[in-house]
Design a protein around this nucleic acid. Structure first.
Lengths: 233, 233, 233, 233
DNA sequence: GCCTAACCGAGACGGTACGTCCGGTCTTTTT
DNA sequence: AAAAAGACCGGACGTACCGTCTCGGTTAGGC
C-alpha cells in the first residue's frame, strides 16, 4: 500500500552528492569516471549525530557550527562541503533522525479503530529518548523561517503520522466499522494538529490522558464513532 | 464574562518603562516627580509598525535591529529604552497588531453553533492584508526558541481564539443545542490546532473551504452535532 | 630647511578618518555637522600598541587579528572600522612607531662630515628597545608583498634617513669640505642601502664597527674624502 | 679559484628525497634497494616552473599550492612528496632559476676594473625576462619571515654577486690597478646593496644609468679609483 | 609475463585565520 | 532627560588556505 520507503541514508535535502546515479537503469556500466578521494560517508552520520546532540542540548540558536565540527572531530570545511549552511545541516540531521520508519507489515490490528489508535500511542508518549522532543522544538523554527525547506520536513516528519492515521481509517472502512464516505482526510489531521499545537503553542506535555481525550472527544466523533466509554471532563 | 480587556496600548510584555515608580524620595506619594524631556510615545507605534513591516518582508532571523531603527528613523537606543531585546520588541509588536480585540458584546448570534462559527470565519480568511499571516510565521520561531516567552505569546495570540470558541459552545449549551457535559475544552482546540498546523506544517492557505470542512467534519461531530448539509470529500 | 614635519598622529595610510579638515583655512567655524558617537581616538593607539607588541613577539605571519583585538580589549569590528586589513593595520602601526621624527634644529654639528655621520650612528645602533628591530623585520615582507603600500613605508621609514644624509652633505658642501658637484644623491643612499642589505639579506647585526667601516670605506670616498684614520681590513 | 659549483639540479634545500640512505640492513653499503615506481624527475621542473610563473604573477602570499599544482597538472601530494612546505618549494624554485651560474673561466677581462664591472652589467639590466625581478620581490618576504632559511637564499642569490665583485677586485689588485690593502669586502657589497635597496625599498627600476652611477660615484671611489669620465649629477 | 611497491592526479580531510555581520551597550550632540 | 547617530565589545558565520590522507589508476623493477 503506502510505499513510503524513504531511504533515510540518502541526504534528505538532495544535496549534491557524488553518488548521483544518473537515475539511469539501461546504461549500467557508464556510471561515473570518479576520480579523487571519495567522500567519507561515515562522516555524515558522525556530523549529524553531533548536530543532533548539540541541538538537543542548547537549541538551534545557541548551536554553533564550530561546536558541531569540534564534537564530530571534523573541520568546518567538511561540514560546508556537505551542507551549504547551518540551516540545511540541521534539517538533514533531523530528517535522518527519523529512523523509525513505519513498518506497515507489522502494525497492530486490534479489531477496532479506537484500539488501533491507542495501540500506536505508546511510541509517541513513551519516547525512547527525551532528545527527540527537544530536537523537534528546534526544527519548528526552521519551518517558519525557511519555507523552501518545509517540503522536506513535511515529508519526513509530518506525512508519516497522517498516513498512519489514514491507514487505520481505511482499514476501519474495509471492516465496515465506519462509513465509506467519511471525511477521513480531515479526521486524520486532527490528532497530529492537536498534538503539535499542544507542544508548540501551549507548551504542554503530550501525555497519555491528552491523547486519549483527543481520540475520544475529537477523532472518533469525526469518523462517526462514539467512544466506548464516553469521556466527560 | 471572560474579561480579557487587555490594553493593547500598554506594552504587552510589561517591559520596564521609565515610569517606574519609587524613583523619588522627597516626594513620597506623588504621582511622578518626572523631570527632563518626556518619552515620545508616538515613537512606539512607529517603531512597532516598522518592525512588523520588516518582519513580514524578511522574517524574524533576517530582520535586524538596525533595519527597524532605520525604517522608523529612530536610534537603536530608542528601541532598547523601550524593549530589552529584539525578541520582546517583536512579541510586543505582534501583540499590538491584534487590534481586533474581541468585542464580546457585539458578537453575532445566529441561533446555531455552526452559524456562529461560520460567521466568525470571515475576519480570519478575508484578511485585510497578507502581512498578518507572514508575521505569524515569524512569531512561531520565537515560541520554539524562547519558551520563557511563550506565556506572553500564548496569552495574546492563542487564548483569544480558544476563548471565542468556548464562548460560542457555552452559549450552545445554554440554548440546549449541545449536551452540557460535552468536552468543549477539547472541541474548542480543534479549529485553532488544525488551522495552525495547516499554516505552519503544511504551508497551505487557510481558505473558506478548509475552514468549513474543519467545522463540519471535526468540530461539530466533537460536540455531538451533525452538519446540516453533510460534507463528503 | 627640509621641513618634513610629518604629523605621526595622522594615520599614515590616510585611512578615511572623520577628522578630515576639508583642507580649508578661510572657513574655520564650518568644520562638520558631526552627529553620533565619535570614534574613540584613544583606541587607535591601544590597538597599534597591541599590534606592535604581538608583531615583535611572534612576527607578522603568526600574528592574528583576534590576538590584537584581544590584547587591546577591542572588538574585531573596531579594528576593521579603522583599517581595511591586517596588512594596513601593521603598516600604520609601524609608521606611528617612528616617533623619532628628526629634529633638524637640534642636529649635532661636529665640523666635519665624518663627525656628523658618526654622531648620528648611536640612535640607530644603541636602540632603546629591541622591539623596534624585530618589528622592522616584519614590515619588510610587507613592502615586497604590497607594492601599493610601499609609498607609505618609503616615505615614513626610508626617506628620513636619506634626507638626513643629504642634509649633512649639503652642509659639508656649504662649509667647503666637499666639492659642490659631488653626486651626493648617490652617496646618501650608500649607508641606508648597505645597512638594509646587511640586516635583511645577510642577517647580520648592524653594529658600530660595521657602520664605521661603511662610512670610511664607502661613503667618504664617494664624496671625495679620505678617512682621517685609514681603515684597513 | 672560487669554486662555487653548486649543482643546481640537486635540490638546493636538501629536502628529504626518497634517496635517504640506510633504509636497508642486509645490504649496508649498497646504493639503494629501491623497488616500485621511481619518482618522475621531469615533474620537478614542471612544478618549479609553474611556481615561478605564479610567484611572478601574484606574489608569494597570494600564490597557493593548489594554483601551482593545477598549473603543473600535478597533484598536491606530488608537490609535498618533493618539498615539505610551500616555503621550501619556493626557495628551491628560485634557487633553480639561477641557472646563470657564473662561469669564472669565461669571464670578460677588459683590462680595467671599471670595464669589467660595466661588462657584467648587461646580464643584470637587459634581463631576458621581467619575471626574474618580480620573483625576487617575492622571495624577500621569505627571508624576513623564515630566518632559518635565509642561509640558503643567501648562498644561492646573494653570495654569487658579491663573489663576482670580489673576483674582479682581486684581479685589479693583481694587476696593480688598486691598492692591495683596499677594503674590497666592503666595496664589493656596495653594488649589490644599492641595487637591492633600489628595487625593494625605492621600487625603482635598475637601469643602465643607475648602475653606471653606482659604479662611478660609489664603487670606484671606494677602491681608490676615479672614474675615467667624472660623473656629475 | 606477472607481481609488487611506489608513483601519479584528484580531491576530501582537520585545523586555523580571515573579514563580515549582528545583538546589545555606551557616548556624543541636539532638542 | 530623551532623541538620533553611530562607535563599542563579543562572538558566530561562511570562505580560503595549508599540509595530510585516501582513492583508482599507472609504471617501473624483480621474479
Amino acid at each position: 500500500m503506502t510505499q513510503l520507503d524513504l531511504d533515510t541514508r540518502e541526504t534528505a535535502t538532495g544535496a549534491p552528492r557524488a553518488s548521483d546515479p544518473e537515475s539511469s537503469a539501461t546504461v549500467p556500466a557508464e556510471t561515473a569516471p570518479r576520480v579523487g578521494r571519495p567522500m567519507d560517508l561515515t562522516r555524515d552520520s558522525d556530523i549529524m549525530d553531533a548536530a543532533l546532540d548539540i541541538l538537543a542540548e542548547v537549541g538551534y540558536d545557541k548551536m554553533t557550527i564550530d561546536m558541531v565540527a569540534a564534537r564530530a572531530k571534523a573541520g568546518k570545511a567538511t561540514l560546508y562541503r556537505r551542507w551549504p549552511s547551518k540551516t540545511e545541516l540541521v534539517v538533514d540531521a533531523v530528517a535522518c533522525m527519523k529512523n523509525s520508519v513505519i513498518d506497515y507489515a507489522n502494525l497492530p490490528d486490534t479489531g477496532s479503530l479506537r484500539g488501533d489508535l491507542i495501540a500506536m500511542m505508546k511510541p509517541m508518549t513513551i519516547r525512547e529518548n527525551e532528545k527527540k522532543l527537544k530536537v523537534m522544538s528546534g526544527i519548528v523554527s526552521l519551518i517558519a523561517r525557511n519555507p523552501e525547506l518545509a517540503d522536506v520536513v513535511r515529508q519526513v516528519i509530518v506525512t508519516p503520522r497522517v498516513e498512519l492515521n489514514l491507514f487505520f481509517m481505511r482499514r476501519a472502512i474495509e471492516r465496515g466499522e465506519i462509513a465509506a464516505d467519511t471525511d477521513i482526510h480531515t479526521a486524520a489531521l486532527i490528532s497530529p494538529s492537536m498534538t503539535t499545537y499542544r507542544t508548540l503553542m501551549l507548551q504542554m506535555p503530550v501525555d497519555r490522558d491528552f491523547l486519549i481525550r483527543v481520540i475520544d472527544s475529537a477523532v472518533l466523533p469525526a469518523v462517526g464513532l462514539q467512544p466506548e466509554v464516553p469521556v466527560r471532563v
